[in-house]
Design a binder for these strands. Structure first.
Lengths: 232, 232
DNA sequence: TATCTAAGTGTAATTTCTACACAAAGATAA
DNA sequence: TTATCTTTGTGTAGAAATTACACTTAGATA
C-alpha cells in the first residue's frame, strides 16, 4: 500500500448506494421516500441510501440501508444502475450504485430512523419531483421492473405468500399499464405449473371469493436450472 | 465543502471503469484483452480500464479508455454492472463500473498504448482465466449481449456498414449459440422493414454472392419513438 | 461447358395468441 | 327464505405467428 502509485490516486469520489423500494397495496404500486432534513434539497423527497462502508460491498450496503429503513431482510433486491455525473450532488463528487427492492408491504413496519428523516409511501403516480437525480433513478427502476416482470417471476415478491390470481393480474396490469384478458392471463400463469393451489378461498367479500395460490419457488429453481423460461 | 460531515467521509474506494470490447470477425466473436505488465496479476489478461477522473462521468471515462485502446469514437457502449467486493483488488478497495462496447473490427487499428501493455483479440472460446474478477465481468457481458440482441438492433454494431444476411445470421447463431433456419431468419429480419437493399452482391467468391444490406438507423429511431419493438 | 457451392425463395402444418359469454359462489338486501 | 348483486372461474373457435422443409439461381472454378 506504500510503494504503489495506485494507492495515491486522489482525490476520489464518495460512493453511496440508493434503493428504490417498491411495495404494492390497495391496487397501487408505491415507493418508499425519505424527506430530507438537511441541505441540499432540504424538504425534498429522495430514495433511502447511504455511504458504502469499507468493509462491505454495494449489495451489503444496499441491504443494510433497506433493513435500517424497513426492518426487512431476505427480500428481493437487485442492482439497477450506477450514476456518476460530475455535478449530481452539489456538495461534491458522489457516485451512486442504485438498487431496487420488491417487498411485501404487509410485512413492512416503519423503523425508527434518524430523527431528521421522515419515511412515507407514495403511489407512483403521486411521486413529487425528487432530490438529486432521483427522478431519473425512478424512471430507470420503473423500466427495469416493467421489462423484468414479463420474463422473471418477480411479481410474487410484491404479494403476500398466498395470493389470488385476480390480485396477481391486477399487479401485472398496473406495472405494465395495460389491460389483460382475465381468462388468458389465468390460463398462461397456470400453464407454467408453478402455482400451488391452496384450495381455499377469500372469505368475507360480498361475492364469490377468489382461491388462494402460492408460487412454487423450489420448482421454479429446478426448472430454470434446466433452461426453463418463465414468461407472461 | 467545509462545514459538512459529508465531505470528510474517508477513506473512500478508488473508482475505475473497465470495458468489455466485443468484435466479430471470421465467424468468431472476440474480446480485446490487455496483458498486465505489473503486479498484481502480472502476465495475466484483463479488460482495458482505468481510473475515473474527477471531471468526467463513468460513460466519459469508459469512452476515453476505449478510444485510448482502439482509436475508435462514436461506437456503441453501454453500462453493464458495478463490482464492489471488498477484496476484488489486492492493492486496496476498488469499485469498478463495467461497460461493454460493440465495434466494427474492420475499423479497428491498434493504438500505441503503454509500453507495459499488450492488447490482443481473443475468440470467446479461447479466453484464458482473467485477472481480478474479470471472468465474472465477461460472463455478465455475454449474458447481456445474448439477451439484448433479441430485442434491440445491436448486432449491426458488430458488422460493417454494409453486410449480407448470411453474415448477420452467422452473428446471431454464434451469439445465441443456436442454429437458425435460413429462410425464416431472412423473412423475419426483412419483415422489420429496417434493412436497405444495396442491390449489389459479394464478388469473388466461388458461388453465388450474397446481396449487401445496411441497417436503417434513422427509420428505426422514428419507429421506436412510436413504440415499435425490434425483435428477432 | 459442366460442376460445385452457397444464396435466394414460398407454402403447408403446427402452435400460440386473441377474443369472447355464461354459470357458480357467496354475501347482502328485501 | 329468497332474490339480487358482484366477482370468480371456465372452454372454444378464429386469427396470427412460428416452424419445418426443397428446389432454383448466380457465379466462380475445373
Amino acid at each position: 500500500m506504500e510503494t504503489n502509485k495506485f494507492c495515491y490516486e486522489y482525490p476520489r469520489p464518495a460512493v453511496t448506494t440508493d434503493c428504490v423500494i417498491f411495495g404494492f397495496d390497495e391496487g397501487e404500486l408505491k415507493v418508499l421516500l425519505i424527506e430530507r432534513g438537511i441541505e441540499p434539497y432540504k424538504g425534498r423527497w429522495a430514495f433511502p441510501g447511504g455511504f458504502l462502508n469499507m468493509d462491505e460491498n454495494s449489495d451489503e450496503c444496499a441491504r443494510r440501508e433497506l433493513f435500517e429503513e424497513t426492518g426487512l431482510e431476505n427480500v428481493f433486491i437487485e442492482q439497477l444502475y450506477s450514476f456518476s455525473d460530475v455535478d449530481r450532488d452539489p456538495r461534491g463528487r458522489v457516485i451512486t450504485i442504485s438498487y431496487y427492492a420488491l417487498i411485501k408491504l404487509a410485512d413492512y413496519k416503519i423503523q425508527a430512523g434518524d430523527d431528521a428523516e421522515k419515511a412515507k409511501w407514495f403511489p407512483i403516480s403521486k411521486v413529487p419531483t425528487l432530490a438529486f437525480d432521483h427522478d431519473r433513478i425512478l424512471r430507470i427502476a420503473m423500466n427495469r421492473l416493467r421489462g423484468k416482470i414479463r420474463y422473471q417471476p418477480i411479481g410474487f415478491e410484491l404479494l403476500n405468500e398466498k395470493f389470488t390470481i385476480p390480485e396477481l393480474q391486477n399487479l401485472y396490469e398496473i406495472i405494465l399499464e395495460a389491460q389483460l384478458d382475465r381468462r388468458n392471463f389465468r390460463k398462461k400463469i397456470l400453464a407454467t405449473g408453478l402455482l400451488i393451489d391452496h384450495k381455499e378461498s377469500v372469505k368475507g367479500v360480498p361475492h364469490k371469493g377468489a382461491r388462494y395460490f402460492s408460487f412454487d419457488k423450489k420448482k421454479y429453481k429446478e426448472l430454470s436450472e434446466r433452461g426453463f423460461n418463465f414468461e407472461v
